[in-house]
């Protein structure tokens, strides 16, 4: 498109061009088929765009603002702490605690052994020793017993 048309295009299409400018552009369009065709297409499209003009005044139904507010509230992301106020949160937490308790209980029961109170400590060993009947004629077993006791304790 030639500059003479480009410069005054908006005024020409809007029909607000001064008589001189209009005459100038129309004069050029008479002799330039390229510009004539393009301007014609632009005019056609500009006219077609008017189909999007609203045809009537719209009456907004009462209560529109409150409906907008409701939508805003629905779309507002909840703050993090709000999750703690949710009853579902309490239900889930209680369920998780119960599950953990059940798991721990199961583990304790399954890992229970015959030791009862576990590996005997030194006090237990000494008590066992003290309950062993004394044999004055043969002190060797006592000494051996003591050695076994001490060895097993350090191990």
């Amino acid at each position: 498109m030639h500059q003479v048309v480009v410069d005054g295009l908006e005024e020409f299409l809007a029909r607000t061009a001064s008589p001189e400018l209009r005459q100038q552009i129309e004069g050029h369009l008479k002799v330039c088929a390229t510009c004539r065709a393009e301007v014609s297409e632009m005019q056609g499209i500009a006219e077609m765009l008017t189909v999007l003009r609203p045809q009537s005044q719209w009456d907004v139904a009462p209560g529109f603002y409150s409906r907008v507010r409701n939508l805003i509230e629905e779309q507002t992301p909840a703050p993090l702490w709000a999750a703690f106020l949710d009853p579902a949160f309490f239900r889930r937490t209680a369920f998780a605690c119960l599950m953990i308790l059940a798991l721990l209980g199961g583990f304790v029961i399954s890992s229970d052994t015959d030791y009862g109170y576990g590996v005997p400590g030194p006090e237990t060993m000494i008590a066992i020793e003290q309950n062993t009947p004394f044999q004055p004629d043969n002190p060797v077993p006592d000494q051996e017993m003591m050695l076994v006791t001490l060895t097993s304790y350090t191990q």
Partner: peptide, 14 residues
Amino acid sequence: MGTLTGVLPLPAFE
């Protein structure tokens, strides 16, 4: 028509 539009300068509006 479309041939010139791509190469000619943009409007130098005053």
